[in-house]
């Protein structure tokens, strides 16, 4: 049984290595394989991070396009997926800014258009609360936003999040603490209780 597991792990390693090597060589098929294997995870994080489907899709495209060259810095210490999620975090900055500007603009025009009860029970109320949190997240620094997205929205462990971002776990936890503090203040200020 142990041998089988070892063989399986070796095969997985081999597969990963070969995919990475092929990506480094710029193989078109390898890029397709990497996209098929990881685009759901990459898109999921991109959407949570950016908060806008269109900008998130642009981010997905940007990340996969940059992958072959970025692999020069890939040392194989983490999985390819973790590496890709780290790229999402690194490439997200300007997409987040663009999406935040758009949200702010939409919020300005629709502020008085409809008032929804924030009881959190109705579908409309839940959607409104979610939007409010997205707007509050736009007020966070990119590091605090990253911590909140990875640890709270994606519900990753601090070890996973730290590996993706490339900082110590304690740093991630501290960032999350400050992010939540700020978000709580903003939500309260905006009428949620």
């Amino acid at each position: 049984m142990k041998t089988q597991a070892a063989l399986y792990l070796t095969a997985i390693d081999h597969e990963r290595e070969s995919l990475v090597d092929r990506l480094r060589r710029g193989e078109r098929a390898a890029l397709g394989e990497a996209f098929d294997a990881h685009h759901v995870a990459v898109r999921g994080l991109a959407r949570r991070f950016v908060g806008h489907d269109g900008f998130a899709e642009d981010l997905v495209q940007e990340v996969f396009l940059a992958l072959p060259r970025a692999l020069a810095a890939f040392e194989g210490r983490s999985s390819l997926r973790t590496f890709l999620l780290g790229m999402v975090v690194n490439h997200a900055r300007h997409h987040v800014r663009s999406a935040a500007r758009r949200r702010a603009m939409v919020a300005r025009y629709s502020e008085e258009a409809h008032k929804v009860s924030l009881d959190g029970v109705s579908e409309a109320s839940r959607a409104e609360i979610a939007k409010m949190l997205e707007r509050a997240m736009d007020e966070l620094s990119i590091d605090h936003r990253t911590a909140f997205v990875l640890l709270e929205l994606e519900e990753r462990t601090s070890a996973e999040a730290a590996e993706i971002v490339g900082v110590p776990e304690a740093t991630m936890r501290t960032r999350l603490f400050h992010a939540k503090k700020k978000l709580r203040e903003l939500l309260t200020e905006w009428g949620m209780s």
Partner: peptide
Amino acid sequence: PLARATRALRDKYDATARDEGDPATRDRV
């Protein structure tokens, strides 16, 4: 309130977790 908002936002994204996104993205890449 933050816990409620987080849950609401998480649910919103979980609903589209398996979304394949724009099928043209792969071709563009």
